[in-house]
Design a protein around this nucleic acid. Structure first.
Length: 301
DNA sequence: AACCAGGACTCTG
DNA sequence: CAGAGTCCTGGT
């Protein structure tokens, strides 16, 4: 069925949001496994004019399926209103042209988002998405050749590297975290899964205020301010998060501070104060505007 | 083949 | 407390 909310699906898929890697792309449509209360379902989305054509298989009601696809692609967000907001500021008014139809790509599995976000730190989009896809293939459950992301209790049992696997198994079958190319992040990930099985209940995060959730998620090893904001934005829908890294710093500095070098921490505060509940979207649009408009190349020097 | 990009963490002053 | 150095991998 067509869901009447304008979107650019491809742009949304390839924009590197750390909720998850892009979905499987076959015959102009994107599909992936979505588990709803433990019930596996295959979601399929296809660009039709400016809208999404959505189909699914699995034992879930149509109402529930639609709720979930709307959540993942943030289809209830009013893009037109957001574009009016962008257009009303000199610094932001070019952005909607370069990113038309870009929406938040929200987590279908918050734990997958946490590991993806840890994996994305000091890394490239291409590399972290491949690592996550590798993990799904190795340790996820297979439903018709779609793979779930392993849950925290599966995850904490994984070996870190070849040495540990050899010691325990007597041979190496690349059945360890480092074999997915995550490097020094492997111990962070395993400790993180420990925390989410023992100390933090994922469902509690939804009930917290932004500040409380930020402080809580910062306790997780491998999670600093940037990664915490990605987790809160893409994993838990906290739109007021403004994930700030070197690129956002360069862009904000160029647009608002006359190119002056500012601390990333200040950029985060600035973004949250200035943009409020649009902070997450503005961050997303800034990054892609910079990519598409050539501003990024200009700022490299 | 040496060098660089990318956040979090740890160590130093 | 700020600033510097280190971590791993894939790309040049």
């Amino acid at each position: 069925m067509i869901i009447k909310a304008p979107i650019d699906l491809e742009l949304t898929q390839v924009s590197g949001q750390t909720s998850q890697p892009p979905w499987k792309y076959i015959d102009d449509s994107y599909s992936d496994l979505v588990c709803i209360d433990g019930e596996p379902s295959i979601f399929n989305v296809k660009q039709t004019d400016e809208y999404v054509d959505f189909t699914y298989t699995g034992n879930v009601s149509e109402k529930t399926a639609i709720e979930n696809v709307k959540k993942i692609y943030d289809l209830d967000f009013d893009l037109d209103k957001f574009y009016k907001y962008l257009d009303s500021y000199d610094e932001l008014k070019d952005m909607s042209k370069f990113c038309n139809g870009l929406r938040l790509f929200q987590a279908k599995d918050p734990f997958e988002c946490i590991i993806s976000s840890i994996c994305s730190a000091n890394n490239s989009i291409k590399r972290w998405t491949k690592s996550i896809d590798d993990m799904k293939l190795k340790w996820g459950r297979n439903f018709n050749d779609y793979y779930s992301f392993p849950n925290p209790s599966n995850f904490k049992e994984l070996y870190l590297d070849d040495d540990e696997e050899l010691l325990n198994e007597g041979n190496i079958k690349n059945n360890n975290l480092k074999s997915c190319g995550v490097g020094y992040r492997a111990p962070y990930m395993r400790k993180a899964s420990d925390i989410f099985t023992l100390e933090i209940d994922l469902s509690d995060i939804y009930k917290m205020s932004y500040d409380e959730a930020f402080e809580t998620i910062l306790e997780v090893p491998g999670v600093g301010p940037k990664v915490a904001d990605c987790i809160l934005l893409y994993g838990f829908g906290f739109r007021q998060a403004f994930p700030s890294d070197v690129w956002i710093k360069r862009i904000v500095s160029y647009l608002y501070f006359d190119g002056k070098d500012i601390k990333v921490e200040k950029v985060r505060e600035f973004g949250m104060d200035e943009f409020g509940d649009y902070a997450g979207y503005v961050q997303l649009y800034m990054f892609h505007y910079a990519r598409m408009s050539g501003l990024m190349d200009k700022l490299k020097k």
